[in-house]
């Protein structure tokens, strides 16, 4: 049963990650792939606060989200100056540079990773309580993003994505939108990091490398970039599919690369056969005019 709970927890966490990543990359069109580093910042912050100060998980997770939100400025500020490919490469540099710091600091456990993160719940109920928390966080994230995207702010985000020059010419503030989108998306990733840290109790810098960016991109692309429900479908599908081959009982050395191959093959197939993903983006909600 613990195995099923851990899958459910991962589904919840990855729904948060894929949906918040989609908000940045799909809805706002800001080409950054550094999302795993905000996941890492949330996880390490909440883990460290719990280890050294005994902070409770809710406060720790919120602190992790705040740190991730603040660090997002290091990507959102460059995005005011560069865009497209340049922003993408800046984000790679930011992600790998910060990981280099995490790998070398004794405080974060260096290369060996951060272990002994205290768990707030022990006993048989631990699995289902964490599943409930992770799935609730996933659902809340989707609803929050749906609310943002379908409202007037969402229309402004889409307008900025489609034609930033015209958007600015109309007197709208693209700078503020970029900063807010990055902060919201990154803080959500930080929350996912907090849940991950308190459940798995161990963090390794390797799990936040560029391959993690590929995993999150896969979920967004396969699910449907720019759609609210697409990343949810992508996350569930891509976490469920590799589980199917676990029943083949192959050695671990075969299992991990096979799962990776399934992941990457799916993305390649989707890029060519169904580039819009499984769930196509919704048409923008019509403007509601007040009755006179």
């Amino acid at each position: 049963m613990e195995y099923v709970y851990s899958i459910l927890i991962l589904v919840g966490i990855y729904v948060v990650l894929a949906s918040s990543f989609n908000l940045i990359i799909g809805t706002a069109g800001l080409v950054s792939i550094a999302h795993p580093i905000f996941f890492a910042l949330g996880a390490y912050t909440s883990g460290l606060l719990a280890i050294h100060f005994g902070l409770n998980p809710i406060a720790g997770t919120l602190a992790g989200a705040a740190v991730a939100g603040v660090f997002s400025l290091m990507i959102s500020l460059p995005s005011l100056r560069v865009s497209g490919d340049y922003l993408l490469i800046t984000s790679i540099g930011f992600q790998l540079g910060l990981l280099q710091v995490i790998k070398n600091l004794e405080l974060t456990g260096s290369q060996g990773g951060l272990s002994n993160i205290p768990t707030p719940i022990a006993g048989p109920e631990r699995g289902w309580i964490f599943s409930l928390v992770a799935l609730a966080a996933g659902a809340a994230t989707v609803l929050l993003i749906r609310w943002i995207v379908r409202g007037p702010y969402g229309r402004a985000i889409s307008a900025m994505r489609d034609d930033e020059l015209a958007f600015v010419a109309l007197g709208r503030d693209a700078t503020r939108i970029k900063i807010v989108i990055f902060a919201v998306g990154s803080a959500l990733a930080g929350i996912a990091g907090g849940i991950y840290a308190f459940y798995f109790q161990y963090l390794s810098p390797e799990q936040f490398e560029i391959l993690a960016s590929g995993t999150m991109l896969t979920m967004v692309v396969v699910g449907g970039m720019g759609s609210t429900w697409g990343p949810v479908v992508g996350a569930v599908l891509l976490l469920a599919l590799p589980q199917a081959i676990t029943f083949l009982r192959l050695p671990l050395s075969y299992m991990a690369p096979l799962q990776g191959m399934i992941f990457t093959l799916l993305v390649i197939l989707f890029l060519f056969l169904r580039p819009q993903g499984l769930v196509a983006p919704e048409a923008p909600a019509p403007l509601r005019h007040k009755k006179q």
């Binding site: 993408l88 991109l217 692309v221 990457t264």
Partner: peptide, 11 residues
């Protein structure tokens, strides 16, 4: 293009 090239490397 970026996704395709990165994913090909990963594959």
């Amino acid at each position: 293009f970026f996704i395709f090239t990165l994913v090909c490397s990963e594959f």
